[in-house]
């Protein structure tokens, strides 16, 4: 078997929360990502879904080394990223790019769109005719070459997101982390951008890590899906197994909570209503982190943490009482 493009093993990322009340200083640790492992193959898309506080965005940033990881290993194209020098990391970064959620905040309002797209080329010291490269990138993402002279405020949200994508493509990356890339867009605009991701992957063959809370978009775009809850992957596997035969109660509840735009289906569907909110990651529950909201939880779930186990339908899930 070919080696995966990206391999993440036992990734842990802690954040320190310092508070200084004037009387005493306290330090608490938030484990935003705890012991997460996954792989992404060439030309494939891994969808990471989860609610706020699940750690999905932190995973994306750790993969790109935008955050220092606490422990674990990340290998990209067979090379371990740990311990690389600044210069070596800069070489690797050429091949890994990111598109952010907010197309308004991720572009410099004082730079023309063309110079924003050319910036990665300049930073990486790539010689050649940047203008031609920018023009072809703009056309690749469905904009016109003469848009390069305009400023971000002259574009709509969907167009700005396309500019962000063009910038990410400038260095011909092998992997793009897409962090909620369509959630700020209106539905009618979303569809065009989602199609663009699919077309680009077919044409250029890069891999995506697609981070989103919208399960229907992930279902459309991903090959494999990881479901995260409070810093852990609770279920991971092929899209088909996850959506058609979810084995973790949280995956089941999440799928059931998403409203389907069809009134007849909605009425006939049985719904799992979870109680309460996601607990604070500062003080996660012992054992299985989902147990405080789970209808199947027993004492076993509080005392022992379930490990990811292969299920008959092919995926891995971490539950003592799988469906």
């Amino acid at each position: 078997m070919n080696q995966p493009l990206l391999q993440v093993d036992n990734l842990v990322k802690n954040f320190e929360l310092r508070s200084n009340t004037g009387i005493r200083k306290t330090k608490r640790i938030v484990q935003a990502v705890s012991d997460v492992s996954f792989t992404v193959d060439e030309g494939q898309t891994l969808g990471i879904v989860g609610e706020s506080g699940s750690g999905k965005t932190t995973v994306g940033r750790c993969v790109l080394q935008l955050l220092d990881i606490t422990s674990g290993t990340i290998s990209f194209q067979g090379q371990t990223l740990d311990g690389l020098s600044f210069e070596e990391m800069r070489q690797v970064r050429r091949k890994m790019q990111i598109v952010f959620q907010d197309p308004f905040a991720s572009l410099d309002p004082k730079m023309t769109v063309g110079s924003s797209i050319a910036e990665p080329l300049v930073v990486q010291g790539i010689e050649g005719n940047h203008e031609d490269k920018v023009a072809s990138l703009l056309e690749l993402v469905g904009l016109a070459a003469d848009h390069a002279k305009r400023f971000p405020h002259e574009f709509s949200g969907g167009q700005r997101q396309r500019v962000g994508i063009a910038r990410a493509l400038a260095l011909d990356p092998a992997l793009i982390v897409l962090d909620e890339p369509v959630s700020a867009l209106d539905v009618s605009i979303q569809a065009g951008v989602v199609n663009l991701f699919g077309d680009l992957q077919k044409r250029l063959g890069m891999s995506y890590v697609f981070i989103a809370h919208d399960l229907s978009v992930v279902r459309h775009i991903a090959h494999r899906v990881a479901v995260m809850y409070l810093g852990k992957i609770v279920e991971i596997g092929d899209k088909k197994s996850i959506y058609e035969h979810p084995t973790h109660p949280y995956t089941k509840a999440l799928l059931s909570a998403v409203p389907i735009p069809n009134p007849t289906t909605e009425r006939s569907r049985s719904r799992i209503m979870l109680e309460g909110d996601v607990p604070s990651p500062v003080n996660p529950p012992t054992g299985c982190r989902f147990r405080t909201r789970c209808w199947k939880a027993t004492e076993l779930c509080a005392s022992s943490e379930p490990q990811l186990v292969v299920r008959p339908t092919g995926q891995l899930s971490a539950c003592h009482f799988p469906e």
Binding site: Q190, A191, N195, S216, R219, H220, P261
Partner: peptide
Amino acid sequence: SLPHEGIERLTPIT
């Protein structure tokens, strides 16, 4: 324009 099962491409509003 909404994603639903079994479709290859979405249909955006231009």
